[in-house]
Amino acid sequence: MALDLEEYLHTAFRDKLRLQAVPAWDAATLLPSTRLLLKRQEVAEVERALQSQREEFRQRMERLEQRRQQLGQRKDQLQDVVLKFDAFLKASAARQERALRRADEERARVAGQGAEAARLHRELTGLLQRRERLAQRLQSLRGFGDYLRGVLARMGQFQDVPAMLARFGALAGARAALAQQAEARQKQLAQGWARLRQYQEEASSELLRTNDELAQLRAHLEATRHDVLQEESHWAHVQSTAAQKTLLLGQIKLAVLNLFQLATAWLKVPGDVALEDTEAQLDTVLLCMQDLAAICAELRPRQPGLSLPRLPVATRMRPMRHRGARVPPSQE
């Protein structure tokens, strides 16, 4: 576009600056001043032509600038229009989508309404059939209505048949409630009997278990009593044996005491031994017997083939030295 503008300006300047043909003057005949004026005139014409060309170029440039601004504004307007058109298209697509969705919903609603209408038609048909049946039943129960009116006339307690029916309905409800209560009480009673039987069974099993334990305890008690009797008999035997041993020990102590007293009295040995010290008394008796045996041995001549009887050894580990008693050398 810049090359076209440059070519256009070049052509316009070339056409405008083309000078008009100056009449041929004879250079020889013209004066220098005249030639100078002619040149000045040509230069002025060229200046005017250039000025007019500049003014035209400036105006054209202004028009071009205005045109450029108009084009920019037009471009902005077109962009706004394009944006608005895009928004319009989007809104139109959204509206179309909503319209399609509403159409689908409308078709679904119409289909649902058709199904609902079909269902209502079926219900209406069923209600009409029920109406026919109720009418037939009413026709068949008309005699009962006459009977109820006759009963109402005979009783004279109610104003109309509905009041009488309401009264009898209340009585029937109370009867049904009482029947339900009686049934509930029967159930509770059955549950109570079941619990009682369960308790009885548990008590019986507990009683059997207790009886078994009692029998075991009684058997254990009998065994314990038998053991106690055996222990008592054994203890009695031990006590009797201990009494016999005690009696024998007492007799032995009395015998030892008698021997001790006889030995000390006969041999005149001082008896400074306690009466309860039986062992010391027995040792003293043994010592006395040993003394007598030694004296007998010294006094009696020895015979071949004869030997003195051996006396028992004293019970104590060390021989006792009684005051005034003579102890044989062997005991020393």
Rank of each mutant, 00 (worst) to 15 (best):
M61T: 14
M61P: 04
M61K: 15
M61G: 08
R63I: 06
L64T: 06
E65T: 10
E65P: 00
E65D: 08
E65K: 04
E65V: 10
Q66H: 05
Q66F: 10
R67V: 07
R67N: 14
R67T: 13
R67C: 14
R67A: 13
R68V: 09
R68Y: 10
R68S: 09
R68D: 08
Q69V: 12
Q70W: 07
Q70L: 10
L71P: 06
L71C: 09
L71W: 01
G72V: 04
Q73H: 00
Q73S: 03
Q73W: 00
R74D: 06
R74L: 12
R74V: 02
K75E: 11
K75D: 09
K75R: 09
D76A: 11
Q77G: 04
L78D: 03
L78V: 05
Q79I: 03
Q79H: 13
Q79Y: 02
Q79F: 08
Q79D: 05
D80N: 01
V81F: 11
V81H: 11
V81R: 15
V81W: 07
V81D: 12
L83Y: 02
L83H: 03
K84A: 03
F85D: 10
D86G: 08
D86E: 15
D86P: 02
D86A: 11
A87Q: 15
A87W: 06
A87G: 15
F88V: 05
F88C: 08
F88M: 05
F88Q: 05
F88A: 08
F88S: 09
L89D: 06
L89V: 10
A91G: 13
A91H: 04
A91C: 13
S92A: 13
S92H: 15
A93N: 11
A94T: 02
R95H: 11
R95G: 09
R95M: 08
Q96I: 02
Q96M: 03
R98F: 09
R98H: 15
A99V: 07
R101N: 14
R102C: 08
R102M: 10
D104S: 01
D104T: 03
E105M: 14
E105N: 09
